[in-house]
Design a protein around this nucleic acid. Sequence first.
DNA 1: GAGAAAAAGTGTACCGGTTTACTTCTTTTT
DNA 2: AAAAAGAAGTAAACCGGTACACTTTTTCTC
Lengths: 346, 346
Amino acid sequence: MRPTMKDIAKKAGVSKTTVSFALNDPGRISVKTYNRVMAVVAELDYVPNPVARTLTTKRLGSLGFLLPQPITEALKNPYICEIIRGIGEVCEKGELSLTILPPIRGRIIDAARQAFVDGLITIGVGPDHEVIELLNKRHIPFVTIDGAETETTVNVGVNDEAAAYGLLSSILALGHRKITILALRPETLSLPEKRFSLVSDRRLAGFARALGETGLGLNSPGIEIIPVECSLEGGIFATNELLSRRQERPTAVLAMADIVALGAYEACRSAGLSIPPDLSIAGFDDIPMAAGAVPPLTTVHQPGREKGAVAAALVVKLLAGNEAQHCCLETELVVRSSTTAPFSRI
Amino acid sequence: MRPTMKDIAKKAGVSKTTVSFALNDPGRISVKTYNRVMAVVAELDYVPNPVARTLTTKRLGSLGFLLPQPITEALKNPYICEIIRGIGEVCEKGELSLTILPPIRGRIIDAARQAFVDGLITIGVGPDHEVIELLNKRHIPFVTIDGAETETTVNVGVNDEAAAYGLLSSILALGHRKITILALRPETLSLPEKRFSLVSDRRLAGFARALGETGLGLNSPGIEIIPVECSLEGGIFATNELLSRRQERPTAVLAMADIVALGAYEACRSAGLSIPPDLSIAGFDDIPMAAGAVPPLTTVHQPGREKGAVAAALVVKLLAGNEAQHCCLETELVVRSSTTAPFSRI
DNA sequence: GAGAAAAAGTGTACCGGTTTACTTCTTTTT
DNA sequence: AAAAAGAAGTAAACCGGTACACTTTTTCTC
């Protein structure tokens, strides 16, 4: 079996304490003893058990990232990858590892319960979610990404309402009046009464405001909202369904994630539609491949890596016992060539 | 302070053991006692400390993935993302979390030393690496990806030599004789005497065999090998350098990773060269975006997600105390339109 | 209703380290 | 040379759970 500190102490003829000193505070003991202990350490291939150490030091050296979906799904979305990269950046500096926590048995709260982390970051989790309560009980400092700014939680996000308003305004200005919105389903099933994810709701509010200025609303004829899964497949599926209908097609599709928009691209390709002018498509996020797509995708840029990095930095701050403030990052409308004026059917 | 099991026991008027039963094996005690204990648990917001539990159960519920580079760098390579997705798949099934372990202070061994994992997966780590020894000392079961098949370690990989042979053979058959190979630098600096990564060495052997059949060798005039960093930037940098030279340019560039090949694409774009016929470019890996690139990239397909999934499944097997076998997955040469016969300069 | 069996609950050792308070021995100060 | 200060080392408590062996209480069987 793996040797323990006791084994080392016995073989070196010293106390456990001395072994501990040799490993963590060599100045505390004589050079002679130090050498003797270390010789035994080398001989028995002793490596201290980090878990046991943790029991007293109460520091694990790991940050957690609580995913609302399985890892396989989540990493299909480059935007999530960007956020992870941002978190990773901070982990590097703080000499921490990064623990990805996928839902266990479909429940994100179980993942949080048994997480071995010093602090963690959630994404898309609202203040009313049970996991928030649990984290508080466990006294684990955490920061939410794309959550909500409340008294008791620290959040990092963007102004989704304003960003959505800007995007739809530009689409409306092009002349589009038949618009389909691909809104994101909530990833976890913990709140079954919700139709859309937290950010989707906020963006819908922005869309509503933009529509209002043209005398329209989310319920106006021609405007449609479809819940989709946040993935390439989700975009393909919804768009296929949309294009196969009898009724008149929209002239523009607004996806709430670039990856969904790229799914729409694919569905259009299969259907033989050109983007544009047959259909204008816009996304949200500005993932790295959005600019390189054919055609380049109009989207709302939000700084994914920065979001992750800021959130992680705030967690580190909390861990150090300092106060942390909410952070609202900038977005920018990036108009590329996937959106033009609607094709006039004669 | 956060309540402990002792606090619960005291307040409920029972022993610590009973509390433990209430939480883990309710059938062991009477309903009446169970209710009383759970009431106190709820009242004091008690959540068991998973670290303490671990000391006796010796199970952490996490798999580790030891990265040879910072997370930010690694996740820029979609191929790594694919592998992580594969590992994630297995984690899901086993109700495990996934701990990403980036080098600490540039040293991968330090990451391994303090990792809180039940088992782990390395990538690109050879049998002579110090980390292998450490993992054995710590008695942590592990599987290597793209490592080496030895008596004492389990490896998941592909036949790099054969794959490289096939790729270069097809390039030579097209008529190319001036070929630049972009080989990968080892990511970690632990073995400074090495020029290339483990897989690069094996692929070079395959290249050498293919060249041999045409009466050439790796040292023949016209054949050049350049060490590059495995990233988009690495590809851009090396290719820029290559194209800016006075001397005659190669007609084909073989990158040992698709992401590097895509970097070469970008450098060509800036230089106003068309791919092909000015330059043929091929990659390795077949990342998802390789097929969608312009032009679609000729490459060697290797199953990234499967690699991760198989490796993780083997670790789980080892954890269960079973034997695990090496696994060599299939590769396939995928010829797309980035490679043609060399452009004849008149 | 006596004896056996099952159920319910407890005390204590243990996991593998860290930390505190204390002892012993050596060196320095006056 | 005595007192004070410092160095080196140790025993035992502690972190917060789990697991084993054991006792006590209840239920069942004949």
